[in-house]
Write a protein that binds this DNA or RNA. Structure first.
Lengths: 374, 374
DNA sequence: CTGAAAGCGCTTACAG
DNA sequence: CTGAAAGCGCTTACAG
């Protein structure tokens, strides 16, 4: 699989040339054998000083003669010494690393979130270990416990499962934990959420305000907290407007294109078809956009509002009206809270809910076809 | 910043209720003081066995009486013991973790790449530490060396800088290193690249085949290897078709929307405007799509091919013709190579080049306006 | 200003 | 089947 041929020989030749002219490689070859790194003990021996003196120099501690320091620095350079932070960490306690467990780093919702967490961690001198649960509760637990075994100082978790009692001993032992996007299940922990309920209510109220009465909801698996909340928001808006909800207008399930496509098609082709759709997340929205684009020519335009913003939503025609949530802000808020806990902030577990924002772009403002109902 | 109010009191009440009814939390509170974890020594003392016996049980090694094992397991559960992998790692040598340094995890190009690297790492029992360089060479070096200090077994690097001599001592000490997307500078290392040159030549040849003669190239900073290669491909295709290239048709620089917008506008409004554009990466393409969409009505349609595929490219009108590269495949290939090196595969540093694929969708097949030139 | 000893929490090699 | 001793590479107390 790796032996992919170079399709352009001229290019390859050029690249080889660049590589071959690279200087400064061979001259640096260390004298120690491959795979073994020098330790402070080696540096101490070479510099003719004690171990503690090397430690002082490496860590910039005071109390070392300029001359001694110079000798130690020379030994460090000559041997290619780099302090082993694993050993340091073992002695010091804190690992200066945090773990982030999310569903799938390849999802555009999580990239900015992860980056935001990383930036906060960096500001606190910590590294970030990422893990994808693939929406599998067992894998989530496995990952989380592996991170605990590595003794990360804290965890930011977008949970896949609903039972996090496995985390209680870890949290009691001092692992700071903040849940994001969805709350923890069966354990009391900090959580930072988007206002799924309010955002969804706004979305559906917006469609109602534009004249729609038969509005479909296409959501994620009902076991997922955000999906349940968005369904709740849908019902609230319908109910507040005094509108009935037919079973055929609600479809919850996996967000793979096939299922969403079938569900949307069914709602659109029913005897009394929906005139507007509310899509429960970005994956659903994209599939619905495809379904609507593929409808045969005489079909009446269908209004659409999607939860989650996505790139290019404004460039489609019509532009897609969305309920935007700031995933980077979600990550930043969670990481801030995590480090406040690590800095000793006590108190009850907190639940922070970030507001969403409706962005009208056209698809959500389409009127229903001239409706015979009064 | 964190004290965002809960916009819906009814929701908050509901959520509180859910949280408050969570069982099984308090009963697990351990007896040890907060922040201190039990060790194997504690488990051994409680079980009345030796340290080594605990180690055997924890690691599933043979040679333990069922009865002894049961006593140890009970002590483990009672104390909430979890093996400290940091200590284990220190003793064993390998850390079972690798580092991935890329430009920005929030960029949709890197999410799938990172996820692919993670999957390969997971298959080899390793964790992944992610770091974003923000395209800053100093930050790249800082991150890479921090990862080396943590003694990651290997590194996958999408380099920001051009001088990686700082890595030579680390590589000599046994840190496996594979560069992705762009080659290493001034050091001999494995690299997995996309065929930027060939892909770009294909893109521009495609535009030429559709009748274009005046083709603009909007690329990234020329110091970035892929940008230089794509420029080279552009020139090769033009030259192979016997077409001249005017200076005004080429613009390299940062890919922020403002600069790209200005450069594209200049090319389109010149006395002899370009009739087609080749966009050097996904960020550039998106901005160009915006610029073209905003042109006043009588403007002639401009052909466009973009390097990198992106979601919804097919749903724009026209669909955007792209040179697709599989960033997940890039990551997978690099990680495979890395672990082969870690498993002892020797030999000279390799350079693997993955092919790209032209996906025609409409924008790249637009003909030039009826041209007076023969 | 400098360093020898003990210890972080494990595993390795060895002996019963 | 079981365990005491030594050591992974550092830092922490402590003593010169």
């Amino acid at each position: 699989m790796l032996d992919i041929p170079c399709p352009h020989d001229d290019q390859r030749r050029d690249e080889r040339t660049v590589t071959d002219t690279a200087p400064g490689t061979a001259s640096r070859t260390p004298t120690r054998r491959y795979g073994t790194r020098p330790t402070m003990k080696d540096v101490a021996a070479r510099a003719g000083v004690g171990l503690k003196t090397v430690s002082r120099v490496v860590n910039g501690e005071p109390g070392v003669t300029p001359d001694t320091e110079r000798r130690v620095q020379e030994a460090i350079t000559a041997l290619g010494f780099r302090r082993n932070d694993s050993a340091r960490i073992l002695r010091k306690g804190r690992t200066a690393s945090i773990g982030l467990v999310l569903e799938d780093l390849a999802d555009p919702f999580y990239g900015p979130l992860s980056r935001a967490v990383e930036e906060v961690a960096r500001a606190h001198g910590a590294l970030l270990i990422n893990g994808s649960s693939a929406e599998d509760p067992e894998r989530e637990q496995e990952l989380v416990l592996a991170l605990c075994a590595r003794r990360v100082d804290g965890l930011v978790i977008i949970p896949a499962g609903h039972d996090h009692r496995y985390l209680a001993p870890e949290m009691a032992a001092g692992v700071a934990t903040v849940f994001v996007d969805r709350p923890a299940g069966r354990v009391d922990a900090d959580a930072v959420l988007s206002d799924s309920f309010g955002g969804s209510r706004d979305a559906v109220a917006h469609l109602i305000a534009h004249g729609h009465r038969r509005i479909g909801f296409l959501g994620d698996l009902p076991g997922i907290h955000t999906a349940a909340e968005r369904l709740r928001g849908y019902h609230a808006a319908m109910s507040e407007a005094g509108l009935p909800v037919h079973d055929a207008w609600v479809s919850l399930g996996p967000t793979d294109p096939e299922r969403v496509r079938a569900a949307a098609t069914a709602m659109l082709n029913a005897a009394e078809p929906v005139t507007a759709l509310f899509a429960g997340n970005n994956r659903v929205t994209v599939t619905v956009v495809r379904v609507l684009a593929e409808r045969p020519a005489p079909a009446a335009p269908v209004a659409l509002v999607g939860f989650d913003d996505f790139e290019l939503a404004d460039l489609l025609s019509p532009g897609i009206t969305v309920i935007a949530q700031d995933s980077a802000q979600l990550g930043r808020t969670a990481a801030d809270l995590l480090f406040r806990r690590l800095d000793g902030a006590g108190g009850e577990p907190r639940r922070l809910v970030l507001p969403t924002r409706l962005i009208p772009r056209g698809s959500g403002e389409l009127p229903p076809p001239t409706d015979p109902t009064p």
